[in-house]
Write a protein that binds this DNA or RNA. Structure first.
Length: 639
RNA sequence: GCCACCAUAGCUCAGAUGGUAGAGCAACUGAUUUGUAAUCAGUCGGUCGCGGGUUCGACUCCUGCUGGUGGCUCCA
């Protein structure tokens, strides 16, 4: 009757227990300390509730709060408690999905009444009540019919629909009076949830499908320790402070204007100056790497876009055509057809390849109004675009070159952490499987030769070719899609571009599209957030501000300004009739890298009193020493 | 595009239950000549996003647009 099971632990230790013992009981026997930090277990590599009995021999591992899977369980249980609270407050609520996500959890709810921020408070209060009840999470297995019956009785139509898609053996969890369909696992009881907060309310389509009903989604977060919650909320605050839309206004970099149009950016002088610096750097980097620059128009005849295929697969992202003298023109959403036209302007030899053409090409795309977001998602933007035309035997080297220039440029802007994805052939594709395989192998080899860690996104390539996407991680560990390197089998075919081979026959070159920063607008937005507006000195629109203390130092201040200008340093004098503290405060808020405070002492000693942004007074220096110092900082692109 | 919320001076925001608006900062003028994150005083500044409607009367209520925010969907 009282059967024994053999449990093996990660340290190799093996013990016997009565069948039906729970991982929770085991961990309590092993060590109170370990038990205290354990939230869930893993039995034979599957997550397993602490109070779910063990029926067989196997390997057992305890998972703590600091483990990603532990936190996931924690969040998932919190989302159940939230649903329970909502059900108690709004008995008509019907539930969709309620998973743990990267940072916290959500639950999708159908409810006639719109949930307001005030409701979140009462839901939180109710959640605390449920937590205080310390209900145990009880797992139960049902077959499909039982589950359908149960949730049908509860009028949970979304659960019923979901059950229909599932296997026959289903688990449900009960906690107090609240029952939910769930594969688990959960924390042992509701009281395990200590600190939580509901963050925001949003709409979300059932099963992410636009054609299905829209549910209300509540996002939340929870942690076992108060400090963790506080840190998390602080990080959200920090992100808010760095918001490029806020900083863009405060630093007078750019605006978006109602009358101009949504998603269209006005670059103010300071932003435009930064853009010029970025562009100059970019052009320079390309010329040094044997790219050539081209310029192309903003519109072209509509036929071009028919030929390129964009009307077939990109039409919904294009602005409507213009009609002039019975000819239709299209504002360009892409630059590639123009580069192809340049390619075709003469016969190309195998000796000409590779050809590398780069353009800061401004494109316009119709994005649905709801997706627009500051500089990150706009309707008019400038791609740092380039197209490489090469032979098959050159492909891998060209990809390698692309990776090299990409990482060089990203690194120069202070981005050292990337997430790299290789997207392979999707179900619908053009070109031959053989070419796809060759190109994918070339991309893969290049990534490996370049020593970049990457993940494969199977089937996520665009229909015209495989691609490498590089997401950069900013200082807050958020990732942004900027760079992309894409092989294209479509357009060379459609435009029938060729080169004359050594064998005297015409061959089709391979075309690579690539963008490093992606769009200047988005990249600028990422830069603003990455640096929180405190740009490294080489990018700062204003590098030095001279702050005379009284009118008496104006002459000397002008002399300093002149010397700095001679050294190509961007400098201004703040000669307003204000106290020095006021001028400093303003310069700090404008995040100007260096302030030179000039009083009588500096005039008399021929010095400058250097104040560094955020760091404060650095003491007095000779002007030449100061110029040398910051010139080298500018040269080295250091912060 | 969809769901929810929001739109008051250049900026940040206040303005129960309908009676044509107020602060701080900025700007301007003056005083002050100041030593490392806000000197003082005065002045100017708003058809309350735009268009309809209800009402004797609308910033306030209803409605349609436009734009924004948080998400969803989409994202070459």
């Amino acid at each position: 009757m009282n059967k024994k099971i053999k449990i093996q632990f990660p340290d190799g230790d093996q013990r016997e227990y009565s069948k039906g013992i729970t991982p929770g009981e085991i961990v309590n026997q092993i060590s109170k300390g370990l038990a205290k930090n354990t939230i869930v277990s893993k039995f034979n590599d599957e997550l397993h509730d602490l109070n779910r009995p063990l029926e067989d021999d196997g390997k057992l591992l305890f998972i703590g709060y600091d483990d990603a899977e532990g936190l996931e369980t924690y969040w998932h249980s919190t989302s159940h408690i939230m649903a329970h609270a909502i059900k108690e407050l709004f008995p008509d609520a019907k539930f969709g999905f309620g998973p743990a996500i990267e940072n916290g959890f959500y639950y999708d709810i159908e409810l006639d009444k719109a949930i307001t921020p005030d409701d979140l408070d009462s839901i939180e209060n109710k959640m605390q009540e449920i937590i205080d009840r310390d209900n145990i999470f009880i797992r139960k297995i049902l077959n499909k019919d039982e589950a359908l019956k149960l949730f049908d009785e509860k009028n949970e139509k979304y659960k019923v629909e979901h059950i229909s898609d599932l296997n026959n053996r289903l688990s449900i969890y009960k906690e107090g009076e609240f029952v939910d369909l769930c594969s688990g696992p959960h924390v042992p009881s509701t009281n395990y949830i200590k600190y939580f907060k509901l963050l925001n309310i949003a709409g979300a389509y059932w099963k992410g499908d636009e054609s299905r009903p829209m549910l209300q989604r509540i996002y939340g977060i929870s942690f076992p320790k108060k400090k963790q919650l506080d840190d998390f909320l602080e990080k959200l605050e920090e992100a808010k402070k760095r918001d490029h839309r806020k900083l863009g206004k405060e630093l007078d970099l750019f605006t978006i204007n109602d009358e101009i149009g949504a998603g269209l950016i006005l670059w103010h002088p300071k932003g435009a100056l930064m853009r010029k610096i970025i562009e100059d750097f970019w052009r320079d980097a390309h010329l040094k790497r044997d790219y050539e620059l081209v310029f192309t128009p903003h519109i072209a005849r509509l036929n071009l876009w028919d030929k390129s295929g964009h009307l077939d697969f990109f039409a919904e992202n294009m602005f409507a055509p213009l009609d002039m003298e019975n000819v239709k023109y299209q504002i360009k959403p892409m630059n590639c057809p123009f580069h192809l036209a340049i390619y075709k302007s003469q016969t190309r030899s195998y000796k000409d390849l590779p050809i590398r053409w780069a353009e800061l090409g401004t494109v316009y795309r119709y994005e649905r109004s709801g997706v627009l977001h500051g500089l990150m998602r706009v309707r008019g933007f400038t791609q740092d675009d380039a197209h490489v035309f090469c032979r098959q035997d050159q492909l891998q080297q060209e990809i390698l070159n692309c990776l090299d220039i990409t990482t060089f440029v990203l690194h120069s802007f202070g981005f050292d952490k990337y997430e790299v994805y290789l997207s392979t052939r999707p179900e619908k594709f053009v070109g031959t499987e053989e070419n796809w395989d060759k190109a994918t192998t070339a991309l893969k080899n290049a990534l490996e030769e370049f020593n970049l860690d990457y993940e494969i996104d199977p089937g996520e390539g665009v229909f015209y070719g495989p691609k490498i996407d590089i997401k950069i991680k900013d200082v807050l560990e958020r990732s942004w899609q900027c760079s992309t390197i894409q092989v294209d089998f479509n357009e060379p075919e459609r435009f029938n571009i060729t080169f004359r081979g050594q064998d005297g026959f015409d061959h089709q070159p391979i075309m690579i599209h690539r963008a490093l920063m992606g769009s200047l607008e988005r990249f600028f937005g990422v830069l603003i957030e990455h640096y929180g507006g405190a740009f490294p000195i080489w990018l700062s629109p204003l590098q030095v501000v001279v702050l005379p203390i009284t009118d008496n130092q104006h002459e000397y201040a002008k002399e300093i300004e002149l010397q700095l200008k001679k050294a190509d340093i961007r400098v201004k004098i703040d000669d307003r009739n204000e106290k020095i503290g006021y001028k400093i405060r303003e310069a700090e808020l404008q995040k100007i890298p260096y302030m030179l405070v000039i009083g009588d002492a500096e005039v008399n000693n021929k010095k400058v009193a250097v104040r560094k942004r955020r760091e404060g007074d650095q003491g007095a220096f000779d002007l030449t020493t100061f110029i040398e110092r910051i010139s080298s900082e500018i040269e080295n692109k250091s912060e």
